[in-house]
């Protein structure tokens, strides 16, 4: 594999984690437009630990994930009061606040950015991205996931049949925040430089986009979405000045033709059935 594609696949791995962080929260029917905020917390915290305190990368990532999970739970509680698009807008506000915070927070360089992190390899990024993807796929087969989907489909009914909707929703926020933080930590140690502008609304939207394009009902959809979002702009380079407009057109076309995302259960079933038939 060329270094170029290695670089792109590192981006795919990082975006996959961001997308999964949205996917986990979305599974309980909550849309977060502020996961770049959690990503920023993870990126800055993990970097601070490796640069200032000389921690190895892995414990720094885990510490960042735990801290972000705590913040996720704290954000999750008030979020219980809000539903749907109102929750989305509150998380959007949270993300913008985190970004504004790091812009003025001098210990990590403010707008000047932060550097000095050790570089991590593509393999290391995918160890995390692949590991968490498998974890989510396993989780999808669990009873807990059924409960999450039940809350997604009808929260009132889920509560009536005795499911602890509060714990599940807050847990999802915490887990999602932790995954976003790992995404941020890996981002920081891949690019070895971070600045607050990396963690704005555009990034949060990219995560959501990857989930929705790839397929929001199956975990593997996030992978397809991440691949598409990273590779498409590169493949459209031949359009020169119209590259981004073409990307916008394709985005709309995909949403119009496959509103459930590229990957869904029906497609997976068909693909696996065919493979079995062929064998």
């Amino acid at each position: 594999m060329s270094t170029y594609y290695a670089g792109l696949f590192a981006d795919v791995g990082i975006l996959l984690l961001g997308a999964l962080s949205v996917y986990i929260i979305l599974a309980t029917g909550q849309l977060s437009l502020g996961n770049a905020g959690f990503m920023g917390v993870g990126a800055y915290l993990a970097s601070y630990l490796t640069v200032e305190l000389h921690w190895p990368v892995t414990p720094a990532l885990i510490a960042a994930a735990v801290a972000a999970a705590a913040i996720g739970v704290i954000v999750g509680f008030p979020a219980l009061r809000l539903k749907g698009i109102y929750l989305a807008m509150a998380t959007l506000g949270f993300g913008e606040m985190v970004r504004s915070f790091f812009l003025v927070f001098e210990p990590t360089g403010g707008s000047g950015g932060y550097r000095g992190m050790p570089h991590v390899s593509l393999g290391y990024i995918w160890l995390w991205a692949g590991g968490i993807l498998v974890l989510v796929l396993v989780l999808e087969r669990s009873r807990l996931w059924l409960e999450m989907r039940a809350i997604h489909d009808d929260e009132t009914a889920a509560g009536l049949i005795g499911l602890n909707t509060t714990a599940t929703k807050i847990g999802a926020f915490g887990f999602g925040a932790a995954v976003a933080a790992i995404c941020g930590g890996l981002f920081a140690h891949h690019y070895v430089y971070i600045e607050p502008g990396n963690f704005g609304f555009e990034r949060s939207i990219d995560f959501v986009l990857a989930v929705i394009l790839g397929g929001s009902t199956v975990g593997a959809g996030a992978l397809i979405g991440a691949l598409l979002l990273v590779l498409l702009p590169e493949w459209l380079r031949f359009l020169v000045d119209w590259r981004l407009a073409a990307f916008g057109v394709l985005l709309i076309l995909v949403l119009l033709t496959r509103r459930q995302g590229i990957l869904d259960r029906a497609l997976i079933a068909r693909l696996t059935f065919r493979r079995r038939a062929a064998a």
Binding site: L31, I85, L209, I212, G248, L251, I252, L255, R259
Partner: peptide, 14 residues
């Protein structure tokens, strides 16, 4: 609701 939101995002890029 997310799907139409993202398709409007497509227009914003264009």
């Amino acid at each position: 609701l997310i799907t139409p939101m993202l398709s409007t995002l497509g227009f914003s890029i264009i």
